[in-house]
Measured scan of single mutants.
Amino acid sequence: MAAGGDHGSPDSYRSPLASRYASPEMCFVFSDRYKFRTWRQLWLWLAEAEQTLGLPITDEQIQEMKSNLENIDFKMAAEEEKRLRHDVMAHVHTFGHCCPKAAGIIHLGATSCYVGDNTDLIILRNALDLLLPKLARVISRLADFAKERASLPTLGFTHFQPAQLTTVGKRCCLWIQDLCMDLQNLKRVRDDLRFRGVKGTTGTQASFLQLFEGDDHKVEQLDKMVTEKAGFKRAFIITGQTYTRKVDIEVLSVLASLGASVHKICTDIRLLANLKEMEEPFEKQQIGSSAMPYKRNPMRSERCCSLARHLMTLVMDPLQTASVQWFERTLDDSANRRICLAEAFLTADTILNTLQNISEGLVVYPKVIERRIRQELPFMATENIIMAMVKAGGSRQDCHEKIRVLSQQAASVVKQEGGDNDLIERIQVDAYFSPIHSQLDHLLDPSSFTGRASQQVQRFLEEEVYPLLKPYESVMKVKAELCL
């Protein structure tokens, strides 16, 4: 049975990233139509530049190519590739079939990587351009969430054990800070992308030097003109047959890092959902379990974690691919890159769409948070109580021993009897502590235990987050809708 299948058929496997999760716009960027249309555009740009620099290419040939950029006979191309065992030459023939007058000058002087690699770089750039505003929107939604809850005390956790208090907004800023680093890295790697350009079979530009009869300047002009037509500021000066596969490492490393950030955020949300302090959106008709109707599973956060793990592992592909590119190139890269580049971007696209949807509907339960604080705060307040007693004339050592005994009794009630923490009640009825009984409410005010959390939130948002989001103001209103 021949390899390949009808990918629109229910009898043929289709990647869930495309069929179930990723956005239509990201799927289109990695589609065959987008790819092969870009090949034709690159052939047109090459012909236009070659004509401008004096090669015998007519206006009629150029116009014929322009008129057929979208006229792609995919069936013919597939048949040609089956016959020739070469995808680029299959599309040269297919393009030439609908451009008979231009057929002889299509791909003039070029090698397969002229269309293959340059198209990949265009796709990487455009895919990054799709991700950047999506990530900015996630940051914006979380920034709104953090600002609104900047002063809401909550129990902090280290080692997932109760620690000092923080605020809900401050905790959210930990998430935002990681995503801001990801946004900066995505922008950097996007701006650092260079075009492969017009380089020939081993990167020496020998074929173009021959076409222009040894004119170095025209060869350099050709490279520059096509690079500018493709919208790049610069091209690699040095290439082998391909652009260095280190570029793929750079791009997928940034995406993998984004995956790590999203995994951490969504894990926190899942843990908070278990504590009943916070939940992701839950639709009115949504079913959490087929057997347990009360369940409210954090399905979206779980999906993000599941896909983020996949995204983090994909960076190993370009690392290994770059390491086995012998001399000017081997074909070890080809099949692998067809999979890992598309999957990385479709996965990143999915987790950003999902995280935006989550961040637009996060639900906080202040009463649950308050109750958990009441359970733990008495123990945390013991040092403040000791200091207040010393100020009232008591002995630190005597007070410490009193607190120690009462704390152990209260802990026994919590752990052995399943009761509430009654340390404060014990202190309130103990005559030894009568000098500070009137101060206990103040000493137990949760806001006095959150330090500068709310001020940190305000400063972080104003100095770091809002300036970073400013270039994306025009796209901030787009909502994230999930079908599944």
Results as ranks from 00 to 15, higher is better:
Q241C: 04
M26V: 08
A230Y: 00
S23P: 06
W175N: 13
R188Y: 00
C180V: 04
I386N: 04
L423C: 14
D182A: 01
A230C: 12
F212G: 06
T244S: 10
G156C: 05
I72V: 04
L252R: 04
L135E: 13
R14M: 14
F379M: 13
Q439R: 05
R83C: 06
A103I: 02
R329Y: 03
G4K: 10
I122T: 13
Q375N: 04
C173E: 03
E60L: 07
A256W: 05
V429L: 13
E64R: 03
P298R: 13
L69F: 00
V364L: 10
S19E: 15
C399Y: 01
A78M: 11
A342L: 03
N68H: 02
T350S: 09
K82W: 10
S31H: 06
W45V: 07
I369S: 09
L341P: 14
L179Y: 10
I237W: 11
A480G: 15
R40T: 11
D73M: 02
R141A: 06
T158C: 01
S290W: 11
A322W: 10
R188T: 08
L255N: 14
I436M: 06
R85Q: 01
E383P: 14
N185I: 01
T201A: 01
L84P: 00
M316G: 05
Q241V: 08
Y21W: 05
T244I: 02
S301R: 13
L440N: 12
A411M: 12
T321I: 10
D87P: 10
K391M: 15
Q184I: 09
Q409D: 05
K199M: 06
H400R: 09
T58C: 04
G5K: 11
D441M: 06
I373F: 01
A308I: 08
H442L: 10
L484P: 06
S15V: 12
V405K: 13
C340F: 11
F379P: 13
A344V: 03
A335W: 07
L352R: 06
T313V: 09
C172E: 01
C172P: 14
Q51H: 10
S112V: 07
A480R: 15
E462T: 00
G394D: 15
L183H: 00
D120K: 15
L135F: 14
M76E: 03
A348S: 12
L307Q: 09
E60F: 08
V168F: 06
F379S: 10
A411E: 08
F232I: 01
